[in-house]
Amino acid sequence: MCLLQETKRTVFDYFMIHNLWGHKEVDWVAKESCGLSGGLLSVWNRDLFSMRFSFTRDGFLGVCVEWKDVLIYIFNVNSPCNIAGKRKLWTDLIDFKMNNEPGEWCLGGDFNSITTIGEPRGRKGIKDQLERAEFVNFIDAFEVVDIPLAGKKFTWFNSVGIVICRLNRFLLSEGFIEKGCITNFFAFVKETWGNLVIHGKKAYVIKEKMKRLKENLKVWNREVFGIMDFNIDKMVQELNEVEDLIANGYQAPNSSNSNVLVKRFLGADSS
């Protein structure tokens, strides 16, 4: 499943979704943008789960689905930037949970808020501390877990690369984590790594194990999630390199180059 924010589109159709996703066995829900601002799109393989209904309010788009005999609510979130808008979003989310059938919860997207002192770099202030405390209180009240990033520390940087933050995140209920494939993933990696028998020098053994583990993970990914190979490894590597430069204080990339990367990543570049 893919959760996209800031689509900046008012119209979606099957032709566009099929081209974006790569095949026609796909379902989706969308929230149109307001002019050139906002817009949400959630896309998934049709056989991934059974959908009950979709819902939307200011700042989020969601679906209620049945997956592995469990009711799950999946939210695609795009939070406002101002504190008043954030507070309304947090209140609306908690209100939705309190007034719907119990289930497991998955909230993903751009929350425009931080949870720890180390998440923003290049920006400090009392307002940030107060907002951070309120956001942490919301996470606790919603009874979800803030899933840490693997490898990368930040998800956003400003145009000159001075301020970098982690604004995007996934918040999952403990039941979702236990029922889902997150714990299964670690068990799979551990078992696969232990079963790989390779002889040679230590550096060679590690290199070959990593190579074969990656191959096994691709198969596991298709079997568990049914996600097609979009051949995005190279683009992810390039985007990660840009982020590394920014995080280490180098000058921000040229905006036109950044746009080219994004277009190529989404398959929108025809060249």
Rank of each mutant, 00 (worst) to 15 (best):
1 M>P: 10
4 L>N: 09
5 Q>G: 08
9 R>S: 09
9 R>E: 10
9 R>Q: 14
10 T>G: 14
14 Y>L: 10
21 W>V: 03
21 W>M: 02
25 E>L: 10
25 E>W: 10
29 V>T: 09
29 V>K: 01
32 E>G: 14
35 G>H: 07
36 L>C: 13
37 S>Y: 10
38 G>D: 06
39 G>E: 03
40 L>N: 01
41 L>P: 02
43 V>E: 07
44 W>F: 08
44 W>K: 03
44 W>P: 01
49 F>K: 02
51 M>L: 13
51 M>F: 05
55 F>V: 01
55 F>D: 01
57 R>I: 00
61 L>H: 05
62 G>F: 05
66 E>N: 15
66 E>M: 13
72 I>C: 13
73 Y>F: 14
74 I>M: 12
75 F>E: 03
77 V>D: 01
79 S>E: 03
82 N>I: 06
83 I>M: 11
85 G>K: 03
87 R>P: 01
89 L>R: 06
97 K>Q: 14
98 M>R: 15
101 E>Q: 14
109 G>W: 02
109 G>E: 04
118 G>F: 10
122 G>A: 06
123 R>S: 14
126 I>C: 07
130 L>M: 13
134 E>F: 05
136 V>C: 11
137 N>A: 15
139 I>Q: 07
141 A>F: 09
147 I>L: 14
149 L>P: 00
149 L>E: 02
150 A>C: 12
153 K>Q: 12
155 T>I: 04
155 T>F: 05
164 I>R: 01
165 C>F: 03
175 G>Q: 07
177 I>K: 08
181 C>Q: 10
187 A>Y: 00
187 A>M: 00
190 K>L: 07
192 T>E: 11
194 G>L: 06
196 L>R: 07
200 G>R: 07
203 A>W: 12
207 K>P: 03
207 K>R: 15
211 K>T: 11
212 R>E: 15
221 N>H: 10
225 F>D: 08
226 G>K: 03
227 I>H: 11
230 F>K: 14
234 K>S: 10
234 K>N: 08
234 K>I: 00
235 M>T: 00
239 L>G: 12
239 L>H: 05
241 E>I: 02
241 E>Y: 05
244 D>A: 08
245 L>E: 12
251 Q>K: 14
255 S>L: 15
258 S>G: 12
258 S>R: 07
259 N>C: 14
262 V>Y: 08
262 V>L: 13
263 K>H: 09
265 F>L: 06
268 A>L: 15
